[in-house]
Simulated assay, not measured.
Amino acid sequence: MLGTKIRQLRKERGLSLGELALRADCAKSYLSDIERGVRDNPSIQFIEKIALVLEVPTEFFFDKSYTTAEMLANELAPEMIELVKQLDLGWLQLTQQAASSGLTKEQFQEFIEYARWKSSQSSGD
């Protein structure tokens, strides 16, 4: 699972294996082994370096509620895949956190409408 998440995020970011290894200051062969599942117990320092380069929290690799856009798209109906591809990972995770915290769609919509209203009040000053 760890290697899969790294590979999918790397591809979503448009990085080659070599580029990620270079930016994270690790051996390309070691990174390749992790991605392919040949090695499955990297150090926390390695994970922190990878997370920094891929711009995700370290918890992304340990918490099952964090997912990549590709993994989420595989779980969705075909008509939703294009929509998911247009959203960035942060928005998908925010929506997922709102739903898992018990926030209803109606409450979320009310919040959006309030935020729009508040913004229009501020710009009207």
Rank of each mutant, 00 (worst) to 15 (best):
R39N: 13
E82P: 00
G37K: 09
E75D: 06
E55Y: 01
A115D: 13
E19W: 02
K28L: 10
L72W: 15
A27E: 13
T68M: 01
E48T: 08
F61L: 10
S120G: 00
R10M: 10
F108D: 00
R7W: 12
E79P: 00
G124F: 08
F62Y: 14
S119A: 15
I112V: 12
L103E: 04
V38M: 05
G18M: 09
A77H: 11
S122F: 03
I44D: 15
E12D: 13
R23F: 05
G14H: 11
S122C: 03
I47S: 07
R116W: 08
F61H: 08
S29V: 06
S122Y: 10
S16F: 03
K11N: 13
K49P: 04
L103C: 11
R23S: 11
Q107C: 00
T67F: 10
Y30I: 01
F61P: 02
L31I: 11
R13N: 14
V53A: 01
E70H: 03
I112G: 02
M1D: 09
S43L: 11
L17W: 03
Q109G: 02
F46S: 05
E55M: 10
T58S: 12
T104E: 04
E59R: 10
A73V: 00
K85V: 02
L103N: 01
D33I: 07
A115R: 06
I81M: 07
Q109W: 01
F111T: 14
Q121V: 04
S120Q: 11
A98C: 07
Q109D: 14
R36V: 07
L52Q: 11
S43C: 02
A27F: 02
K49F: 04
Q121S: 08
V84E: 12
L103W: 09
L2K: 02
L83K: 14
E82W: 00
D63P: 03
G37F: 09
V84P: 00
S43G: 10
G37N: 05
T67E: 14
F62I: 05
K118T: 05
D88M: 07
E75P: 00
L89W: 07
V84L: 11
E113M: 07
E113V: 01
I50C: 04
E59F: 09
L31D: 07
A21H: 09
I34C: 05
R7G: 03
V53T: 13
I81K: 13
Q121Y: 03
